[in-house]
Amino acid sequence: MKITLRIWRQHDREAAGRMVSYGVDGVSPDMSFLEMLDVLNEQLTAAGDDPVAFDNDCREGICGMCSLVINGIAHGPEGLTASCQLYMRHFSDGDTIDIEPWRSPSFPILKDLIVDRSAFDRIIQAGGYISSPTGAAPDAAAMLVPKKDADRAFDAAICIGCGACVAACPNGSAMLFTGAKATHLGALPQGQIERNSRSLAMVNQHDAEGFGGCTEIGECTAVCPVGIPLDMISRLNGDVLSALRHNTT
């Protein structure tokens, strides 16, 4: 099939950007979306033009590196799918597809479709961990974890840290990401001791990074490639409020 792409091109952080149109021929329905971009880049390289820069690594939906807003939807039209897992069979011959980077002042654009998501790392630094220095751990069987809690923790821990939630949120909030981490660690008995300080510290850092507040709209959950549910934000809200009420930190 033949596809027309309109892609955000921006040379570097400081430069102004704009949408540029390209035609790509010979797109097969079995190509992944990123492979289609590879084809475009081969074409651009052959013509001596600058290929389009886009982040990707695992190309199987787990590393969280790929980050394309496709036709205005973070990670594109298919639900529960990261950009790299999207296949061209979901488009038709002659389509025009608009591709843009995540847009958030907290995720500055580095080039074309690549943004800087280090804000997420700093949220984790603020408290997204359980302190357990190497060597200090008791036997793994010493603590039983109810299956329900282990499963809940797992469902939160599968967040791939892609940032689509921020890209989709009309408030530019990263509460789904932050809530997923608070739920992961807070659902486990190991995570109880730091639960209050963790949620305060992460939320403070979240705000300091310039992310907006959550108004419970749920656009984030609609684009999240792994289906992190909205209740994880509520859980974080609850943890923060209880930490504010009880001075256990």
């Binding site: 190497t134 039983l144 486990l188 995570g191």
Partner: peptide
Amino acid sequence: SIIDQCVAQGVPFARDYGGLL
């Protein structure tokens, strides 16, 4: 020791209904 370390960090390994790994 690896398993001990990871459990202490909060790695949500699969558990059975008795809560054991």
